[in-house]
C-alpha cells in the first residue's frame, strides 16, 4: 500500500459518501445517471468475486463490501425509493450503456492477463469502469447546470483514478515484477474522459462561479 493508492481509495470512498449525502439530504438524484450507477455496481460485482476466496487484508475486504453495498444501495434507491426516483432525469439519461457492457466483455475475452474466468471478469470490470462514467458526463452536459454535490461527486470520482495512475507509476519503480498494463491503460482512458469536466470544474472554482458544462 502506498500513499497514492490510499489517497485514491479515500477519494473514491469520499465520492460515494458525497453521492449518498446528496441523495439522503436532498432526497433527490437529479443530475445523477442511473446508468452509470448500474455500471459501477456491475464493475464491483465483477471485480470483487474473489471477496470470499482470496483474503488480502481487512482493509481490502471491508472496502470491497462498502463499494458493493453502497453501489447496490444507490441503484436500489434510484429505482425504488418513491421520493428519489421522482427526481431521476429519465428523459436525459438515455445513453445506451448496454453497448458499453457488451463491448467491454468482448474486449475482455480478447485482451486479458490469462484466459480464465476470474481474469476475464477482472479485465471486463477494468474496461467497464473506464467507460462507466460516460452516461454521467453525457447527462451533465444535457442537464446544463450542475448542483454542487453532483459536481463534487463527479470530480472525486475522476480524481481517484488519477491518483491510481500515480500509484501504478510508484509501484512500477519500486516493485520488480509489477506489471498492471491493462489497469494502467484503462485508467489513463478513464481519467482522460474527465479532462474537459476537470477543466470546467477548475474554471468554476477559479471564478467562484456555478459549474456550467457547454451542451
Amino acid at each position: 500500500m502506498n500513499v497514492f493508492r490510499l489517497t485514491g481509495d479515500m477519494t473514491h470512498l469520499a465520492s460515494i459518501l458525497v453521492l449518498l449525502l446528496k441523495i439522503y439530504a436532498t432526497k433527490s438524484c437529479s443530475g445523477i445517471s442511473l446508468k452509470t450507477q448500474e455500471l459501477y455496481a456491475l464493475v464491483f460485482l465483477a471485480r470483487y468475486l474473489n471477496l470470499f476466496t482470496d483474503f488480502i487484508s481487512v482493509y481490502n475486504t471491508v472496502m470491497k463490501l462498502v463499494f458493493i453495498g453502497s453501489s447496490l444501495a444507490i441503484v436500489w434507491c434510484m429505482r425504488m425509493h418513491k421520493m428519489v426516483k421522482r427526481s431521476y432525469d429519465q428523459e436525459l439519461d438515455t445513453f445506451r450503456h448496454y453497448f458499453l457492457i457488451a463491448g467491454c466483455f468482448l474486449l475482455a475475452l480478447l485482451v486479458n492477463e490469462k484466459f480464465m474466468f476470474p481474469e476475464v471478469l477482472w479485465a471486463f470490470s477494468i474496461y467497464l469502469e473506464a467507460v462507466s462514467t460516460i452516461p454521467q458526463l453525457v447527462l451533465l452536459q444535457r442537464s446544463g447546470n450542475v448542483d454542487n454535490l453532483t459536481g463534487q461527486y463527479v470530480f472525486l470520482l475522476g480524481a481517484y483514478r488519477a491518483l491510481y495512475i500515480l500509484n501504478w507509476i510508484y509501484r512500477y519503480f519500486t516493485e520488480p515484477h509489477f506489471s498492471r498494463w491493462i489497469a494502467c491503460v484503462a485508467g489513463l482512458v478513464q481519467t482522460a474522459l474527465y479532462a474537459d469536466f476537470f477543466y470546467y470544474y477548475f474554471l468554476s472554482w477559479k471564478n467562484n462561479a456555478k459549474l456550467q458544462l457547454p451542451s
Binding site: 493508492r5 473514491h12 471485480r47 474473489n50 481490502n60 472496502m63 490469462k114 515484477h177 498492471r180
Partner: peptide
C-alpha cells in the same frame, strides 16, 4: 506466461 499477480488493488 507467468501466473497473473493476485489483484491486490480495489
Amino acid at each position: 506466461k507467468e501466473e497473473p499477480q493476485a489483484h491486490d488493488e480495489l
